[in-house]
Write a protein that binds this DNA or RNA. Sequence first.
DNA 1: CAGTGGTCTAGACCACTAG
DNA 2: TAGTGGTCTAGACCACTGA
Lengths: 234, 234
Amino acid sequence: MSGPGSRLEWTDIRRDLLARIQTGVWKPGDSIPREVELAAQYGCTRSTVGRALRDLATAGFLERRRKGGTTVSANPVRKAPLEVPIIADAIRKSGKVASYRLLTCHIGMPPRVVSARLGLGPAGAVMFVAALYLADGVPHQLEHRWLVPAAMPGLEAEVLERTPVDEWLLHNAPLTRATIEIEAIDAPKAVADALQMPVGGAALLVTRQSWRQAQVIGLLQLYHAPGVKLSTAI
Amino acid sequence: MSGPGSRLEWTDIRRDLLARIQTGVWKPGDSIPREVELAAQYGCTRSTVGRALRDLATAGFLERRRKGGTTVSANPVRKAPLEVPIIADAIRKSGKVASYRLLTCHIGMPPRVVSARLGLGPAGAVMFVAALYLADGVPHQLEHRWLVPAAMPGLEAEVLERTPVDEWLLHNAPLTRATIEIEAIDAPKAVADALQMPVGGAALLVTRQSWRQAQVIGLLQLYHAPGVKLSTAI
DNA sequence: CAGTGGTCTAGACCACTAG
DNA sequence: TAGTGGTCTAGACCACTGA
């Protein structure tokens, strides 16, 4: 059976297996055939079905265990990839003109909440940067950054007059790890003014803390103007 | 060179390559050696370095082209995996007791905005479901769903009295594709009352539209109580 | 202990694409 | 057209883990 038409690729097998899952041929919790059997069915080697199975497993559709075999996930946890782009790029991609304004840039003591999160002692001064990104001249996103100077040699206020902070950091102080939190807050006055929105209105706040290896780089707070949405897809 | 100590695995090679990128041995835009050369350097086969390279490419660190070779991404776009969990599971995972209340469940005409997004004609009635999820008895998340009845045979209000909507759907009307939008809104009265928060306060709104193949399943709006955050990490 | 997935090797052919 | 990555095969050994 299965005329040798043209050779099967692992994506073909992936598609076929996924169809069996999504159409209910294999139900959540079911065990599916071993790699060797599937390989025989598809007329290919174990490596090839293995690649398809592995891919479905990392996507959350299958669970695999040595000796236990492969089963269909009972509660597939889908993951939506949320992109962390260069802001100017994102604005341009939506067909608008991106511009940038540096609001503040100085070294000083951060609020306690911030220094606590950054794990800094009471004497730890950091650089504070406030910047505004505009789309077609309209405020799009306000960002507050607290940056640990030790982690970024060569950062000067002058540089940030011309280069958006995020781009400078990406090329000069790349992160290796970051945590991200997304929440809605009532816009305080400073935020509302910058984004030209009413005080107390709903703003989307993205807080990101980043590290390079074990070294804390800094804390970033992004405030999005009303109407701005984060989008993704599964 | 490179004493054969113990055999290298592809994750070892991945780690080593990533280190070369992150420490700046290879800078953004640089071309890196061909697979064959790397294989020789690491003393393994092309398949093994290939797997490491492929993985770094899908993670956004490398860009690969046939004949063009492999280069370090100039603007690495990091992707943060945002999980879409069963709500009760998420609540339990945070160490709290999850409970659920069905508020409304009836068939009728949806608001115009909704029927437009669902691609329904003016005669398209849908099922509307409002439900509240609580953590330790405190309102955690309110959800409004508009579900196309054709896509979900067997859905009855009675069922939803006992089973959380999201779990029922996961097992009975699995989605194959979804779009997700995240934004902050001023809570309207209905939302504010359900979440026990002030009217006009900031609420986090997640809107999700889902399909099974080409068939629209429905539209979901999740309102998160103040203080609730979506978290992820890179 | 035995069975399953995880990994590697050595080789081959092919698809794409830069020059 | 020639060089690169993408894929497959056939075989092997090993790590984990359920019975």
